[in-house]
Amino acid sequence: MYDNLGASQVGMQRPPLNPQPNPFGNAFYGAGSGLIRGGLGAYGERILGSGSDYVESNISKYFSDPQYYFQVNDQYVRNKLKVILFPFLHRGHWTRITDPVGGRLSYKPPIYDINAPDLYIPFMSFGTYVVLAGFSLGLLGKFSPETLSLQFTKGLLGWFLQVALLKVLLYSLGSGEAPLLDIVAYAGYAFTGMSLAVLAGIFSSITYYILMPWFCICMGIFLVKTMKRVLFAEVRSYEKHSSRHHYLLLFMAVAQFPLFFWLGNVGS
């Protein structure tokens, strides 16, 4: 049976088991792969290189290294709280200490400079504010996970509004290139005095209404001093528009009153 099947297919040509390679195909394939690896690889490397240069030269102007804002110690925290809560007692200068690194201008971290912004105090103050707000809600008989979550969202919204206020102010004054995390830190310092006012309100409403305006004034003074330092450092035409600058800075200070009382009114 198998012999007859093989005999009937004698005239048919079977494909070779080991076909001969095509030298022209290999040549073209090698040239194509070399082109991909060489030309496209170099092109991609050039794109990535230019992209990293763009990130370093442009985005770094608006964002900073987050680790920079957490280089703090106990001494810095104590002194910084004094500057925030009693800014008129700060007798030193308000300018930051420069630290040139690699031919670029940078600044000393908070642990070495009391005027440097940090994120440790704002985050701790915000957490304290949420905890005290929850405790106050419990005393009012309004505590629930939903109300605490609402108060947390309200605090974040207030923080965002403060950041937006400072950014718009800097753009209006011609200095919009301050790093975003700097602005976030400056805006978050508001929760320091606010937490103390909410704590006082737990024991006495009269004390709350005495301390809240005080901390509004102190925060306004702190922000005015800080923003003027940024303006003097980055805006060359400060003297030409000094009156407009002063009005905008005054508006920023006055805006602390509705913001503080809105956030301090827990449970509303």
Score class of each variant (00 low, 15 high):
T207C: 15
L119I: 00
L231I: 08
R37F: 13
G176L: 05
T192S: 14
F191W: 02
L81E: 13
G188A: 03
L248S: 06
F135G: 03
L119D: 12
P179T: 06
V184F: 12
Y68N: 07
N18G: 11
R104Y: 01
F260L: 02
I183T: 06
L17I: 00
P258Y: 11
Y112D: 02
Y238D: 05
P109Y: 01
G32F: 06
P179I: 04
V131D: 02
V184N: 01
L157Y: 14
Y54A: 12
A27E: 12
S60H: 11
V254E: 09
Q20E: 04
F251C: 02
G174S: 09
I36V: 15
P145E: 08
S64Y: 09
R104T: 11
P145A: 10
G6T: 09
L148T: 07
F86C: 03
V224I: 12
L139R: 05
Y208G: 01
N73L: 06
K240S: 11
V235K: 00
S33P: 00
I114G: 08
R104P: 14
G127Q: 03
C218R: 05
Y189N: 04
E239T: 11
L105Y: 15
L250S: 14
P122C: 03
Y43A: 00
E234R: 10
N58L: 11
I84K: 07
R236P: 12
E234P: 00
Y68W: 10
Q13W: 05
S237F: 15
R229K: 13
S149C: 05
G201N: 06
Y2C: 00
T147P: 09
M194L: 13
L181I: 01
F257M: 07
I111D: 09
T153W: 07
G102T: 07
Q67F: 09
L150V: 00
R91V: 13
T192I: 08
P66V: 03
L170Q: 09
A133Y: 15
F143L: 13
L231C: 02
S175R: 05
V235F: 00
S52R: 01
G39Q: 05
R14C: 09
Y171H: 11
